[in-house]
Amino acid sequence: MSGNEAAAEGAMRAGCRFYAGYPITPQNEIIAYMADHLPLRGGVFVQAESELAAINMLYGASAAGVRCMTSSSSPGVSLKQEGISYLAGSELPAVIVNISRAGPGLGDIGPSQGDYFQTTRGGGHGDYRCPALAPSTVQEMAEFTYLAFELADTYRNPVVVQGDGMVGQMMEPVALDHLRPPRPHQKPWALTGAAGRPRNIVRSFRGVKGELEKHNIKLQEKYDEIKRTEVRCVKIACEEADVLVVAYGTCARIAREVIAWPPRRLPGRVGLLRPVTLWPFPCRQIAELAERVRGVLTVEMNAGQMVEDVRLAVEGRCPVHLLRRMGGAVPTAREIADKLVALFG
C-alpha cells in the first residue's frame, strides 16, 4: 500500500465521512482512493472545482458535525490557507493532508519540506496554530491521519498531516487492524437545525468591541494546552549520544540509517531526535539533550526552516548546524555521515 492510500484508509477508519479535494501531484492516490472507497463506506466524496472550494466545503461539512478531510500538495495547500484560517477562527475540526513538493511557485513535484514554516506557523492570516503530524513511514501515514481526526475533534481545530512526496508515493507493508472505529465526540455546537435547542451559529467574526480579543485569548489558551499535552517525538540512541541529529519525515528515515552505521564511520555516538509533532515542537526534549551533547545537526529538505525552532529550543547551549537539500533533492545517508565527520570528527 502506498503512503497516500494509507492516509486515505486511515481517515476512513477514523470515521471520515466527507472528503473534498482537487487533483495535484504527488497526492493523487489519496483523491482516487477516496473517490473509489468513501461512497461505498457511507461517506461523501466531492471533486471540488479548486482547493479553495474544497477547504470551504470542509467548513460546511465540519460545521454540520461530520468528520471531514481534504488533501493536497504545497501549491494547493497555499490556496487552502484562507479556509484553514476560517476553520481555526470558527473552531471547526478538520484534517488537511499535505503531501508537499518543492517550491517556490510551481516548483516541481519532487519531495520537499519547504512548507514547514507555513504548516507550523498557522499558514494563513491571523493568530492561530494547527497541530501538525509528520509521518515518516507508510504505517504512520495511516496512523497519524487517524490520530489527526482525534486531535481535531478533541481541540475543535484543524490538524495537518505533513508528509512529502517520498512518504506519499512509497509502498510498504501496513497493519491496519488496530485502527478501530473511534468513539464519537459530542458536538453540541454543530449545525443540525435548531430543533429542541437554542440555535447554533458557527463563525469567526467578532464585531463587538473587545469580543475578538477575548476570543483570541481563548484560542491561545487552547494552543497552550495543546503545547502542554500533545508534543510527540521519537528519540533513538539519544541517552549516550555525543552528537544529536534532529530530522523529521523522510530526512529522519535517512538519518536513522546513519545512526545504525558502525561508530568508526561516525564522530562518536550519534543520537537522533525525530519530531512527530512539528507543532507543538519538542522544545523541552531538545533543550534537555542540548545540555549534554557537543552539538546538533538539523537535516532538512528546505533552506533551513526547522533549524530556527531547534535554535530557539537549544538557546545557545551548544552549536546548531544545518544540512539542507532543496528543490526536490533528498540528502543521502553518506552526506549526513560526511557532514557529521566534518563538523564533529
Binding site: G60, S62, A63, G83
Partner: peptide, 19 residues
C-alpha cells in the same frame, strides 16, 4: 442555525453542509 463563510465561498460551504 447559521454558518459564516469566507468571502465568496457560501456555495462551497453549503455544498459541504447539504451533502
Amino acid at each position: 442555525d447559521w454558518s459564516e463563510a469566507a468571502h465568496g465561498r457560501p456555495p462551497a460551504v453549503a455544498t459541504g453542509l447539504k451533502r
